[in-house]
Design a binder for these strands. Structure first.
Length: 252
DNA sequence: CCCCAGGCACAGC
DNA sequence: GCTGTGCATGGG
């Protein structure tokens, strides 16, 4: 919930003891927690939502044994962040989150995304387009504001079919996403991984780049992409998330 | 006050 | 195709 994935920007940490997070959902409030036994608990009627969000079907131990095979770095990352899951958020809210993310930092991204919420949900493309310029300016998106507006216009105008990406191969969906202003290789991979559940996507940001350089001796984006695909295959997204967290702690 | 941030678009090779 | 550069602005 606090690993730089969309829930980091969309959900709130509860004040009470224990791991507890909540989010408004229209008129009601959905909350999830982890009990003393390590089990996930959701507010009444929200178990299904929580299971999907936290990808309860993923077998972490099986994933660990696959991605950490003959890989001391990955084994270390898993040891340190054991239990961290990939998450599945909405397609649009994921796209908006990472349109806000470029050349920014996590605290600011969260502030930006929080400003784009109404009743706990990210404003629809049409609603963003209707925001008065002054109000939009106050969100402090900087130059990303133009990217958000232009991308929202393409989605709202039917020029871009976001849910339609589900029907494409990962590679095709990635190319399609990069038609959107402000979406390059990295943002596209984040949207595919966190918003479309494409676990083979491998977002290559500054931290992952440093990790790949220092720990695997791989430098260029091209090399990184090929290396990740060969080494971790369809689980590259999980490997990336653990590398990201380890890099932020060790390569600060 | 300075440095950097979950990058991208664009220009120039 | 690859490399360098500017970018608005807040957080630490």
């Amino acid at each position: 919930m606090e690993s730089g994935q969309p829930p980091h920007f969309l959900w709130n940490r509860g004040d009470e003891e224990g791991r507890h997070y909540w989010r408004r959902l229209g008129e009601e409030k959905i909350s999830i927690r982890q009990n003393a036994a390590g089990e996930m608990q959701a507010s009444p009627g929200h178990a299904k939502h929580a299971s999907k969000l936290l990808r309860a079907g993923d077998d972490l131990e099986k994933i660990y044994s696959t991605i950490a095979a003959e890989d001391a770095v990955m084994a270390r990352a898993i040891e340190k962040f054991r239990g961290m899951r990939l998450t599945k958020s909405g397609e649009w809210e994921t796209l908006v989150s990472f349109l806000c993310s470029q050349n920014s930092n996590m605290a600011r991204i969260r502030n930006n995304v929080q400003m784009l919420l109404r009743d706990g949900s990210v404003l629809a493309p049409e609603e963003i387009l209707q925001l008065p310029p002054m109000q939009l300016k106050k969100i402090n998106l900087g130059y990303r504001e133009q990217y958000l507006l232009a991308s929202a216009a393409m989605v709202a105008g039917g020029e871009f079919d976001l849910p339609g990406l589900h029907g494409l191969s990962c590679e095709d969906a990635r190319a399609e996403l990069q038609r959107l202003p402000g979406v390059g290789p990295k943002v596209a991979d984040c949207v595919l991984l966190y918003g479309f559940g494409r676990l083979e996507a491998f977002p290559n940001d500054v931290w992952v780049g440093r990790a790949m350089q220092k720990w695997y001796g791989v430098a260029t984006p091209r090399q990184v992409k090929e290396f990740a695909e060969r080494k971790w295959g369809v689980l590259a997204g999980y490997a990336q998330q653990y590398l990201f967290m380890l890099a932020r702690e060790k390569l600060r």
